[in-house]
């Protein structure tokens, strides 16, 4: 027992993280996601809780996948400014995750700390039809969780939530005041 656990510990950490990039069939992912939704749905009372649960899954993925991305792609540079970071997520990171870029990145007209990432067709919603009695439910909260995980571990404290808008799935990113203060300090320099 002793020797087997020691051997296992070494194999997990010794294994190289540098691996050629592989893909997995979308069907496999979609069915797994569907099971996640059903599992969570059986354990919550309302839509908001369900979305929170999905977002928690996303956060778990987000904080881990960011480091992996930088390591695999041999990129040493990390964005410290708000706009380049958001563009990085919208273009580079989205491409890494879903094989395409997100359609739009926009800032709220009045509130400077609110940004939108908009997708016409969100991958996780592709095979999902929302029941009529759950009108506001959007399963892309999972993706919102990923975005929040990435931004928060990169030092951009924020809250992300998702809703369905006429132009597609919209992830609303609300940054904390501390982030905005830092931005204006950096601007002043």
């Amino acid at each position: 027992m002793q020797s087997s656990s020691a051997r296992m510990r070494s194999t997990t950490l010794d294994r190289s993280l540098q691996k050629t990039k592989g893909d997995v069939n979308l069907t496999t992912f979609a069915l797994l996601f569907s099971e996640m939704v059903q599992y969570s749905q059986n354990r919550v009372d309302n839509i908001q809780d369900l979305q929170n649960k999905l977002a928690d899954f996303g956060k778990h993925v987000g904080v881990r996948i960011l480091d992996l991305f930088f390591l695999r792609n041999g990129k040493d540079k990390r964005e410290v400014r708000l706009t380049p970071m958001l563009i990085f997520i919208q273009k580079t990171f989205w491409k890494f995750l879903f094989n395409r870029e997100a359609d739009h990145l926009e800032q709220h007209a009045q509130e400077a700390n609110v940004y939108y990432i908009i997708e016409r067709e969100c991958l996780v919603n592709k095979f999902i039809s929302v029941p009529k009695d759950k009108g506001n439910l959007n399963y892309a909260s999972f993706v919102a969780g990923i975005i929040e995980g990435i931004l928060c571990t990169s030092g951009f404290t924020c809250k992300v939530h998702t809703h369905q808008a006429p132009r597609g799935t919209t992830h609303v990113i609300t940054f904390a005041q501390s982030v905005m203060d830092r931005e204006s300090r950096l601007d002043a320099k």
């Binding site: 893909d23 992912f29 899954f57 993925v61 996948i65 890494f96």
Partner: peptide, 11 residues
């Protein structure tokens, strides 16, 4: 029709 393997693994 494909997603990154890492996304699947971590999910």
């Amino acid at each position: 029709r494909r997603v990154t393997q890492e996304l699947f693994t971590l999910t």
